[in-house]
């Protein structure tokens, strides 16, 4: 454990945004796991953006072969083109409709990644705003907001998600797709976000309640700073650590939630292959076609771990008190 050499900071980095970010970046550069994760995320994002160029085939193209109608005996050996082992033509093999698993995984990555970012933005915005207001506003305002979070929070997610999915069916305010992503995918993730924000709001609020009692808040108040100024300048940067940990967990959680929903049968429309759809679709063929589950799952796991380590690195970097 290093011994503190700098003077104690009562007020975290008030010197403007670029400096704050630059400091954070400098601190993060020293964290190897976070830097590797950042590169991995970057590579995955680039792959996702250029999915159409990376994928050798269309994700819905079927390479079924028929050996001429062997239907009398189900046990007769057959070549169907399905469940091919990885070859040069199909590097991840083929699935239950003889589609190229690699192409589907790449396209699935794009859908899942964009959806995860979408979820992060929605949850963070709602969570931070509600959490901050709850902790800094008047008592009755806090109560009101917390009652609203309570209701959202105590609401079983599944019903809510099925509802949104059913009411809007396959279009979002009339749009069948937004930015090339099917509306049903966005809806699903919107629904997931709308059920996930209370956790974020609670973390922010809980963190702020603790900070409120700390010395520098009292000091700032004593110096006559306005309540809103205290909230924005002093509390938020301090609450940002837990929020980022929560947000980094959210990306894979959103993708996982979608996978789980696909598994019980309320996922996104085919032929759109999100990673979750791929895993759950291939899941019933797991014992005869391991590649179908393994590659999308591995992609998901890489995403998951990268977000974990990156988030951790960010947390350490943003936290002005953390020292190596």
């Amino acid at each position: 454990m290093a011994v503190r050499t700098e003077p104690l900071q009562a007020f975290p980095a008030p010197s403007g945004r670029s400096g704050f970010l630059w400091d954070a970046y400098k601190r993060m550069r020293r964290n190897r796991a976070a830097m590797i994760s950042m590169v991995v995320i970057g590579m995955l994002v680039v792959t996702a953006i250029f999915a159409d160029l990376v994928a050798p085939y269309s994700p819905s193209e079927q390479f079924l072969k028929s050996s001429g109608g062997v239907v009398e005996n189900p046990l007769a050996p057959r070549r169907t083109g399905k469940f091919e082992r990885p070859t040069a033509d199909h590097v991840f093999g083929t699935d239950q409709l003889a589609r190229d698993i690699f192409s589907r995984t790449v396209v699935g990555l794009r859908i899942s990644l964009s959806a995860a970012f979408f979820a992060i933005v929605v949850v963070t915005v709602i969570g931070v705003v509600v959490g901050t207001f709850a902790a800094s506003g008047s008592k009755s305002f806090d109560d009101l907001l917390m009652r609203v979070t309570d209701i959202t929070y105590a609401f079983p997610d599944l019903l809510f998600i099925i509802l949104l999915r059913s009411v809007f069916a396959d279009s979002l305010f009339g749009f069948k797709s937004v930015l090339g992503i099917e509306a049903s995918v966005l809806l699903l993730f919107l629904a997931i976000s709308l059920t996930a924000w209370p956790t974020m709001a609670r973390i922010i609020r809980g963190q702020l309640l603790t900070i409120r009692e700390m010395e520098y808040t009292i000091a700032a108040r004593a110096l006559g700073a306005r309540q809103s100024r205290i909230a924005v300048r002093h509390w938020l940067p301090n609450a940002v650590g837990p929020a980022i940990v929560e947000a980094t967990f959210l990306a894979p959680r959103a993708i996982f939630a979608e996978a789980a929903l696909s598994f019980i049968g309320i996922g996104v429309n085919p032929p759109t292959p999100s990673l979750g759809v791929l895993i759950s679709e291939h899941f019933s063929w797991l014992q005869i076609n391991w590649t179908g589950v393994a590659f999308p799952t591995a992609t998901l796991a890489v995403l998951f771990l990268a977000f974990q380590f990156f988030g951790d690195g960010l947390r350490d970097a943003f936290d002005p008190r953390s020292r190596r």
């Binding site: 979750g276 797991l286 796991a301």
Partner: peptide
Amino acid sequence: STSLAAVPAFVTAF
């Protein structure tokens, strides 16, 4: 702890 969490629960379960 994270590698267990990195795989969807239904895959782990199976």
